[in-house]
């Protein structure tokens, strides 16, 4: 499910490195979010660009991130004769391979976990907002849209974070050979 062993210079070989990336991602979100929330004046078109960039920075919903894109068909589509013979024309550069059966299961499981987390996050945010509105309605109401935007970015990035957080350490070919030799 993880497409690369490093991402913008950050190594992603071990689980701890990937977890650090996830923590860094949420720190980045906080850096963007806090001034926006305090000022309460996000600009619509900047916000759309930021949503697409920040929501998809870890991959999954778009190509180019450490997580393979979710979209596309099944693994057997990859094995179809049309694609093998490349009769569909010139291949797009950087096009990710289709997810195989294991990766699809992994993707689905990550969404299950993300959905579970999200139910709590959305519920707690709604309750916190309703409580906070009782105390400072005039200050909070114009900032509701910034809060919603933050939630949207979290919703978009959560499954990818789950995948990166849970993925087992990658084994290089060399390590595999060494392990095989050791068992023999």
């Amino acid at each position: 499910m993880i497409e690369c062993t490093s991402f913008i210079g950050i190594p992603l070989r071990t689980q701890s490195q990937r977890r650090r990336l996830v923590l860094g991602y949420y720190a980045l979100l906080a850096i963007f979010f806090v001034p926006l929330f305090v000022l309460g004046k996000p600009i619509l078109f900047t916000l759309i660009a930021q949503t697409l960039t920040l929501g998809g920075i870890l991959g999954g919903i778009r190509a180019g991130g450490p997580v393979k894109p979710y979209g596309g068909g099944s693994a057997d589509h990859d094995a179809s004769s049309l694609l093998t013979l490349n009769l569909e024309g010139k291949r797009r550069r950087g096009m990710s391979p289709w997810l195989d059966e294991r990766e699809q299961a992994e993707r689905d499981h990550a969404h299950y976990l993300a959905y579970k987390i999200l139910r709590w996050v959305l519920g707690m945010t709604a309750v916190a907002y309703l409580v906070a509105v009782q105390f400072s309605k005039a200050w909070l109401e114009p900032r509701a849209s910034a809060l919603l935007w933050m939630l949207l970015v979290v919703v978009l990035g959560l499954p990818q974070s789950v995948i990166l957080w849970n993925e087992a350490p990658l084994e290089t070919e060399c390590e595999t050979n060494l392990n095989t030799a050791a068992t023999l």
């Binding site: 979710y70 993707r107 689905d108 499981h109 969404h111 299950y112 993300a114 959905y115 499954p159």
Partner: peptide, 8 residues
């Protein structure tokens, strides 16, 4: 898991 992916 698959239905959660679809529902998300």
């Amino acid at each position: 898991d698959a239905v959660h992916y679809r529902a998300y």
